[in-house]
Simulated assay, not measured.
Amino acid sequence: MIVCSCNVISDHDIRGAVSIDDELCSTAQVYDCLGCTVRCGRCSQAVRRILEEQPARDIRGIGA
């Protein structure tokens, strides 16, 4: 499913980036890893949800 229409990024792209670099903890970092930037921002909540659903992740930076 396309999560970001501006950059044409799918949920699979985001999950792939997170699986490669488990230190990604913000939408900006995910977009940077994918070689683009957040444009309109409507996708930010969806990207955040995908980050939060990854197992054994604490995106606040406190323990894991």
Rank of each mutant, 00 (worst) to 15 (best):
M1F: 05
I2L: 08
I2A: 03
I2S: 06
V3L: 00
V3H: 00
V3D: 04
V3K: 02
C4T: 00
C4A: 01
S5Y: 05
S5Q: 09
S5E: 06
S5F: 01
S5C: 06
S5L: 06
S5N: 08
C6H: 04
C6D: 09
C6K: 03
N7T: 01
V8G: 12
I9R: 13
I9S: 03
I9L: 10
I9C: 07
I9Y: 01
S10K: 02
S10P: 00
S10Q: 07
S10W: 04
D11G: 02
D11K: 01
D11V: 01
D11Y: 00
H12L: 09
H12C: 05
H12D: 13
D13M: 00
D13W: 01
I14D: 02
I14Q: 08
I14H: 05
R15L: 10
R15H: 05
R15S: 04
R15M: 06
G16S: 15
G16E: 13
G16N: 10
A17K: 00
V18H: 01
V18K: 04
V18E: 01
S19F: 14
S19P: 07
S19G: 05
S19H: 12
I20R: 15
I20Y: 09
I20L: 13
D21I: 01
D21H: 11
D21F: 08
D22L: 07
E23F: 10
L24F: 03
C25F: 12
C25Y: 06
S26Q: 10
T27L: 10
T27I: 07
A28K: 14
A28F: 05
A28L: 10
Q29A: 09
Q29Y: 09
Q29R: 12
D32M: 12
L34K: 00
L34Y: 00
L34T: 00
G35N: 12
G35V: 00
G35R: 03
G35S: 11
C36L: 07
C36F: 02
T37L: 10
T37N: 14
T37R: 03
T37Q: 12
V38K: 08
V38M: 11
V38D: 06
V38A: 08
R39Y: 10
R39V: 06
R39L: 12
C40N: 05
C40R: 05
G41D: 06
G41I: 12
R42D: 11
R42S: 13
C43W: 00
C43S: 05
C43N: 04
C43I: 03
C43A: 10
S44R: 12
S44G: 11
S44A: 09
A46P: 14
R48Q: 15
I50G: 00
I50N: 04
L51D: 05
L51I: 07
L51K: 00
E53F: 13
E53G: 04
Q54W: 09
Q54V: 14
Q54R: 13
Q54N: 06
P55V: 03
P55R: 11
A56M: 07
A56R: 15
A56E: 14
R57Y: 08
R57V: 14
R57A: 01
R57I: 14
R57K: 14
R57W: 12
D58Y: 09
D58G: 05
D58I: 10
I59A: 06
I59Q: 10
I59F: 08
I59W: 00
R60M: 15
R60F: 13
R60A: 13
I62Y: 15
I62T: 06
I62H: 15
G63Q: 11
G63F: 02
G63H: 08
G63R: 11
A64Q: 08
